[in-house]
Design a protein around this nucleic acid. Structure first.
Lengths: 229, 229
DNA sequence: TCTGTACTGTCATCATTAAGACAGAAATGC
DNA sequence: GCATTTCTGTCTTAATGATGACAGTACAGA
């Protein structure tokens, strides 16, 4: 069951697989590549929503801000993933910030060019719908987590997700590098920086994980899983 | 700005607008109508995900259950709305319960028949993607609310949403009927039944709303808006 | 290499809200 | 029309986690 879900996820991975040469040429023509340095904005709220982005290298965070200035991170985008896709659905303006977490290489496509491209490659229709459906599912899982889990469990769930998405298994440890600062984890898991810190240091003391500013090492994944149920 | 957003929402409303007669005939052939009485299940978690549903009459709630048996309501479906759409994206099994809240008339389409139908009516592709994108947006707003607002504000936001979606303006009051029991509101807003009750009775004492088991009357919408920021 | 800034780690205090208990009202089923 | 179940309203208690403060550490830029 868990495996079937995994499969369903992976299936959505590469939007442009199996396109013919001509289409790939057209795709190249309508996209523009950009190198962006660390901690730079890609787009802002209220900005007109006119491109879809494909992340080639690095990480991006999507954040929303409350009227009184608190921040929350809606999600992290990794290499190979798409963001800003709401412009394809004629969203008029951005609702969130997209900010680089590292040196980033990103590929932008104007939404109208992209719509035309999809018209020429109708097999992309279902893939796009699936891609959006996949994000929807992630959001619904996030809601579930906020409702059912306490702060500590949410932080641990986040570590497990990080291990799945960015971890490298070396021996029986999982390495995640780069790691995130506590404040970012707090904004992703809807708790305070102090709570993140106390959960992490507690796990470190017990030998379940190890970490510093640059990396996270998961030494006992089973123990983490046990703690989130 | 608020108006543009509203527009974006409404645009997604009728999936089957402007289809030709032949297509409408085909649609009728592949759909099956069902009358279902109050408080009955439509589908369960783990059930194979093989149909998409269109709600013609009544209300449906989608609920998830935590491993330890707590419930939460992922969303309410009103007349004219679609649910179970993840089957179209090859979800293998349902993740939630769909339960009727009233007498319901619902129209089911097998996902494979529906895919074929969409192939014959490619204009549905973008509409479907938008429909799913719309749900995604709703979920993202829900996450935002869980993170930024306290329990009382979430309940009030819910009342305002209910007013928008199901309310009838009569004079300067907004009537919502049927209403929901406190437990359901609690499961929708991620707080306890007791908190819902105290928020509602407090608002009633102050003359902002009135309610009983059957209906909700919003007497001062502006006051409610003021309280959620 | 120094210096200012950003991040980590820790603690005490306080607010929010969940949970349990129970009485009374309303709805449902027989 | 009566009995049983479900829902509302209210209280008290207790736990979770936010907040603010501050010292120590790492980092980046001059």
């Amino acid at each position: 069951m868990a495996e079937l879900t995994k499969f369903w996820y992976l299936e959505n991975f590469n939007l442009f697989r199996n396109l013919d040469n001509e289409s790939m040429e057209e795709l190249k023509r309508i996209t523009s590549m950009q190198n962006i340095s660390k901690n730079q904005p890609i787009y802002f709220p209220q900005e007109p929503s006119k491109s879809i982005y494909f992340l080639k290298k690095g990480r991006v965070k999507l954040t929303r801000m409350s009227p009184d200035g608190k921040e929350m991170i809606l999600g992290l985008i990794n290499k190979g993933e798409v963001f800003g896709e709401m412009s394809y659905l004629d969203e008029d303006e951005r609702k969130e910030f997209a900010t680089t977490l590292d040196e980033v290489l990103v590929c932008a496509i104007n939404k109208d060019d992209f719509k035309q491209f999809v018209d020429h490659n109708p097999e992309l229709n279902l893939r796009l719908t699936k891609l959006i459906g996949l994000k929807m599912r992630k959001y619904s899982e996030r809601i579930e987590e906020l409702v059912f889990k306490d702060a500590g469990q949410r932080v641990i769930s986040f570590l497990l997700r990080l291990a799945d998405e960015n971890g490298k298994q070396i021996g029986d440890e999982i390495f995640v590098k780069p790691f995130l600062k506590h404040q970012d984890i707090a904004e992703l898991t809807a708790c305070s920086r102090q709570t993140v810190n106390s959960v992490l240091t507690d796990l470190r003391e017990k030998g379940v994980i190890n970490f510093d500013r640059k990396k996270l090492i998961i030494q006992n994944k089973e123990e983490l899983k046990k703690r989130v149920g």
